[in-house]
């Protein structure tokens, strides 16, 4: 499914990479025009990058380049996956009203993971793709406050109201976790751990797939379990 890219100034861009069998169109959504960082020059760079990669677009696939995206985080800072090359990146989909997310935040499991791995240089991006219509949307101020109250140690919070990033990654559940290596390749897509439940008591005996993947990536090893079934509430696009 090919599509000519046409970026007006002031868009959030998600660019896939692939070779046919496209499942996800390139998506463009209005972006915050007040972002002083998103200049015409940036947008031109994004256009050139996009066109040089491919005009066909594919959903996130383990072993392939992770769909690029650029967005403002909840504090207003620009977050560009392209600019994070050289660093290992974690994407975490969140909805603090979801009992599966509550399980991992009330137990501090998620915050410990964030703290441990950001301490090792990993960039941790927590994303809420809930739409306003679904009732799961949180504005930046609320997102920051809730995350601070929960003790989040994420590097960035992104309110992806349009679902642009979520759909590019085909994020299904909250939580849904992705690990991208320093070369920008998606190396893990799936659940946070092996116990599909809302019970905190299951955490100590669960195998934490994200920690395992990150340990392997940081050690320069291939990820041994690169894809698992995510569990949680559906992402409310």
């Amino acid at each position: 499914m090919e599509k000519i890219l046409n970026f007006p100034i002031g868009t959030i861009a998600v660019l896939g990479h692939g070779n046919g069998d496209a499942q996800q169109d390139c998506v463009e959504e209005p972006y915050n025009h007040s972002n002083p960082m998103m200049t015409a020059k940036h947008m031109f760079t994004a256009m050139v990058s996009a066109i040089s990669l491919s005009l066909s677009v594919q959903a996130a696939e383990v072993g392939k380049p992770a769909p690029a995206f650029a967005a403002k985080d909840a504090k207003g800072a620009e977050v560009s996956l392209e600019k994070l090359k050289g660093k290992v990146v974690v994407l975490e989909w969140v909805n603090h009203g979801c009992p599966f997310v509550v399980k991992h935040y009330a137990s501090k499991n998620m915050q410990k993971l964030q703290e441990t791995y950001t301490g090792k240089g990993v960039v941790w991006i927590t994303i809420n793709s809930g739409s306003k219509a679904s009732g799961s949307y949180t504005d930046n101020e609320t997102f920051l406050k809730i995350s601070a109250d929960k003790g989040s140690k994420a590097s960035h919070l992104i309110a992806d109201e349009s679902g642009t990033i979520g759909k590019a990654y085909m994020a299904k559940t909250t939580p849904h976790m992705y690990v991208i290596d320093a070369a920008g390749v998606l190396v893990y897509n799936g659940a946070i751990d092996s116990k599909k439940s809302t019970d905190e008591a299951d955490i100590p005996t669960a195998e934490n797939y994200v920690a395992k993947a990150l340990d392997e990536v940081l050690a320069g090893k291939p990820v041994s379990q690169a894809k698992t079934e995510p569990y949680g509430c559906s992402v409310k696009y």
Binding site: C98, P99, F100, S134, T198, K236
Partner: peptide
């Protein structure tokens, strides 16, 4: 007994 109940917008254990 444990279960999960969901509607279109949310899930409750």
């Amino acid at each position: 007994l444990r279960w999960l109940a969901c509607d279109e917008k949310s899930c409750v254990p």
